[in-house]
């Protein structure tokens, strides 16, 4: 098992003396190589879950375990990606991909070789000397994925990485991410508010309630083609899964 949340709660001090409970007693497991999505209304603590997995801050109570070891700080087992690509604008693409390896004492030649390999996996060959501003949004996200993969993390955390892209780029990028991640055999946690994206890409979906976030449902997506969302997309069952999510999130009631 790769990732486990054990009765995790997290509250933040608000301005004044109040406390805001963002995540309330959340427990779940993600198995090795599994692709799990977390969906929920905005402000439900999705990103808090991600930050705790990355070790950027600690749970108020409970435990987060990566490969059975409690997460106590930022660590090399976890690679994360946000909606923003977070490429360093003053570095060219290859130097950006190497960025994650620099703090680890990997010799320069090895760094370059590993970065070139990931560049290739993410279909960016030939762009190593370009600067981020010269690339399209989709290409920049692929470069960010290459940077994430180059540190060879046990878990990849994706925080709405496709939400800033136009519809077509999104489809293509979901497809290329799904394939790259499947080939690399990485355990992945995807935070998203796009319900169909969750159905298309995941093995399993966790539904969170409104704040304070609690897991209110767990849906196993029993569909083929996890590595090809574009093919999964045309399956008739996809609509049923989305409808289930709809129901759990009570979207119809809210619309009424």
């Amino acid at each position: 098992m790769a990732l486990e949340f054990r009765n995790v709660s997290k509250s933040f001090a608000t301005q004044g003396d109040g406390e805001l409970l963002a995540v309330d007693d959340v427990s779940f497991r993600v198995e090795e190589g599994e692709f799990v999505s977390v969906v929920g209304p905005s402000g439900c603590g999705k990103s808090t879950i991600l930050s705790m997995t990355a070790g950027l801050y600690q749970p108020t109570s409970g435990e987060v375990l990566v490969s059975n070891v409690p997460v106590t700080g930022p660590n090399s087992h976890v690679g994360f990606m946000l909606q923003k690509d977070l490429l360093l604008p003053w570095r060219n693409i290859i130097a950006n991909i190497e960025f994650g390896l620099e703090a680890r004492g990997v010799p320069k030649a090895d760094r370059r070789a590993r970065a070139m390999k990931e560049l290739d996996h993410c279909q960016l060959s030939g762009f190593e000397n370009h600067f981020p501003y010269q690339l399209s949004g989709g290409m920049r996200q692929r470069a960010a994925l290459a940077r994430t993969l180059s540190i060879d993390p046990e878990i990849i955390l994706l925080d709405e990485p496709f939400s800033a892209l136009d519809a077509q780029t999104k489809l293509l990028l979901q497809n290329s991410f799904a394939k790259t991640i499947k080939d690399a055999g990485k355990t992945t946690l995807l935070i998203t508010h796009d319900l169909s994206e969750a159905v298309l890409m995941s093995d399993r979906i966790l539904v969170l309630s409104e704040r304070p976030g609690q897991v209110i449902a767990e849906i196993k997506v029993d569909l083929p083609h996890r590595d090809q969302p574009i093919r999964r997309r045309v399956l008739p069952e996809v609509g049923e899964y989305a409808a289930q999510l709809f129901k759990h999130l009570k979207l119809e009631e809210k619309a009424a």
Binding site: S51, G55, N75, F80, L82, L86, L88, F99, E102, A103
Partner: peptide, 25 residues
Amino acid sequence: DRDLVNLARAYNLTRLGIFWKVEMP
């Protein structure tokens, strides 16, 4: 950008490393 700093932290950069590689540029 706080997210850039967090990214550098997640990559285990030291305080000084974050300064030279993220903040300063």
